[in-house]
Write a protein that binds this DNA or RNA. Sequence first.
DNA 1: AAATTGGACAACCGCATTTGA
DNA 2: CTCAAATGCGGTTGTCCAATT
Length: 333
Amino acid sequence: MGRAPCCDKTSVKRGPWSPEEDELLRSYVHNHGTGGNWIALPHKAGLNRCGKSCRLRWLNYLRPDIKHGGYTEQEDRIICSLYNSIGSRWSIIASKLPGRTDNDVKNYWNTKLKKKAIANMQQQQEEYYHHHQQHSSGGGRGRRGGAAAAVTPRAAPRSQQCASSMQPSPASASSAVTTASASDACSFGAMYPSPSTTTLQAAAPVLARYDGTAPAPPLPPPPPQQQQQQQASALAEFSPAPAPATAISGTWAAGLPLDDMFLPELLGDSEFPPGGDFFGTGFAPLLLQDRAASASLQELSACYFPNAQAEMWAAADHHVHVKPPAGLCHSLT
DNA sequence: AAATTGGACAACCGCATTTGA
DNA sequence: CTCAAATGCGGTTGTCCAATT
């Protein structure tokens, strides 16, 4: 038994809205507000529409502060970067773009930006191949050499397998909010092999602090030396820059503000290549680091960062009318 | 000129979550 | 605490229109 429909679909009008209906809804909301009850609104406003339809029409089209089209380069970068970080959480992404709606951003991504980003990734791959060919001729260099051999042009880099950065973060897959779609060609599990157990074990304590699933202070007891070394190795490979020694003690992971990780590129910081690498520090450095473990850590970071990001956004951004994404933030806590 | 194709976007659908009685 | 209703969200579909064949 499915749940009862919100309205009698046979008795309400469906399909495109007429200008008259728009005006009725607009004037009603202008005079009375939504009243917090979309189900009752159509009747009061004299509209023969489903309440959900009215809500959608208002939120996506009639609201006075809506912008349509004309996405800027900066907005493109924000969308790509956020999609890379949190996946298809369109409402969250849209909340970072004043005047944009989740539906608008979603449509824009699906019709334009995704292709643009894929093309960008393919260009990066070519650069990667070029770079790899230049360096692989110099002979093996231990583990690096071995990892590089595994990433041959025939065995395409992960980025190509799903235009990597187009890959919604697994947070969406693990989130209780998300309904995984079988048609999602970029399903994380399908596209990426799971991180190795060793990598998971080594990185878990650090990443857990990002996620908030483990308390930051007080710091956990120092791990055994071997585990410390594994964490150091993992973090060093995860971070584009060599991780400072303090990272291993916990201050790096627990104390690093989100802004340091993410907002600079969100805000178009000069570090972020304008119009170039869509994904800032997220992928380009990794493409040039043929280390298998870094890819695993990247997967993990993609899985864990979103929670930290979402919570920090919710806490920091008082202008956004978006509640902390409960499923995202709490499903792992 | 007609048919086809593909892009863009509005709207719908179904499910998860939240809310309140 | 429970349950039904309301709301929010993301995926998908439908429709319009311009470009191409």
